[in-house]
Simulated assay, not measured.
Amino acid sequence: MLTGMHIAVIGGDARQLEIIKKLTELDAKLYLIGFEQLAQPFSGAYKEKIEDVDFSQLDCIILPVPGTNLEGEVDTIFSSDKVVLTEEILNKTPSYCTIYSGISNSYLDEIVNQSKRKLVQLFQRDDVAIYNSIPTVEGTIMMAIQNTDITIHQSKVAILGFGRTGMSVARTFSLLGAKVKVGARSSAHLARITEMALTPFHLENLKDEVSDLDICINTIPHLVLNAGVLAKMPPNTLIIDLASKPGGTDFRYAEKRGIKALLAPGLPGIVAPKTAGQILANVLAQLIAEDYENRKGNKS
């Protein structure tokens, strides 16, 4: 139970509703910032404007998966008001206040470091990333079907990156009968790709591997599908970029060549927000409870 815990949930999408539901069931007191247009009531959760919250009482702050943008703004689909998280706000919180976010960026890192608060990035955890890859894969399949006029079966598919999402995507497309090859840099990843009966290639050779693709799925959050690579790609290739914004594709050049390139970060929140929210809610509940118990133990 989280009785006595004071938690601010700032912005987010439908995934946050599962988090709110879970934490209120555990008897935490929640302040919902950026939820003015949310009709669904939650016992123990109170809608607040950010300027009206007493941050000195907070045990933790929960941000949506993207965290903030580079100006500190937090996405709030349940509010038309702009919500900005600042260093000044964090300085008002107790020194033990923990900030939870899916991912981070230079702005969020900076204000957390300057305020000497603790930041937990949920998507750096193996359990969250692996569970989250399930709705990501389903969403990727949906996009591939909607945006091509061929079957996935027997299609030529390249997966770029062999992290937790890349591995799940590669395995599933292969099981659907696609001819899958996977680009990676790590020798261990290349060995694992081979062990899974997929075709490996080193990302240094990417230009030589795209000339006959039907679908290219990128999971690498760096510019890998640059103009030089796209120039070698057939115009009818579909690119699905799963990397966090701004993705790993030169979208301007792709459009110029007539290649359909779709940036699709946050697919779990689009195709399966309830499941994706439950994944985050269960991990958050565990982490917050452990943090609370540790603080009580230190006091005693």
Score class of each variant (00 low, 15 high):
residue 2 L to N: 05
residue 13 D to S: 12
residue 14 A to F: 13
residue 19 I to Y: 01
residue 21 K to I: 03
residue 25 E to D: 12
residue 30 L to K: 09
residue 31 Y to L: 09
residue 35 F to P: 03
residue 57 Q to R: 15
residue 62 I to Y: 00
residue 77 I to G: 03
residue 80 S to F: 12
residue 93 T to Q: 11
residue 99 I to S: 08
residue 103 I to C: 08
residue 104 S to R: 07
residue 108 L to M: 12
residue 110 E to P: 03
residue 114 Q to D: 11
residue 120 V to Y: 02
residue 125 R to K: 14
residue 127 D to W: 00
residue 128 V to M: 07
residue 133 S to I: 07
residue 134 I to M: 04
residue 135 P to T: 09
residue 137 V to Q: 01
residue 141 I to F: 10
residue 143 M to V: 06
residue 151 T to L: 14
residue 152 I to W: 07
residue 154 Q to L: 13
residue 156 K to T: 11
residue 159 I to R: 02
residue 160 L to T: 01
residue 160 L to M: 13
residue 178 A to W: 01
residue 180 V to E: 01
residue 181 K to T: 02
residue 185 R to W: 09
residue 186 S to W: 02
residue 186 S to V: 03
residue 188 A to P: 00
residue 188 A to Y: 08
residue 195 E to I: 06
residue 200 P to C: 14
residue 204 E to Y: 04
residue 208 D to Y: 11
residue 212 D to V: 08
residue 213 L to M: 14
residue 216 C to I: 14
residue 217 I to T: 10
residue 219 T to W: 04
residue 220 I to P: 02
residue 230 L to E: 03
residue 230 L to W: 00
residue 232 K to T: 04
residue 234 P to S: 07
residue 240 I to K: 13
residue 252 R to E: 13
residue 257 R to S: 06
residue 260 K to G: 00
residue 261 A to F: 04
residue 265 P to R: 11
residue 267 L to A: 07
residue 268 P to C: 15
residue 273 P to G: 09
residue 274 K to V: 15
residue 275 T to Y: 03
residue 278 Q to I: 13
residue 281 A to F: 07
residue 282 N to R: 09
residue 284 L to W: 00
residue 287 L to G: 06
residue 290 E to S: 15
residue 290 E to C: 10
residue 292 Y to P: 00
residue 297 G to M: 11
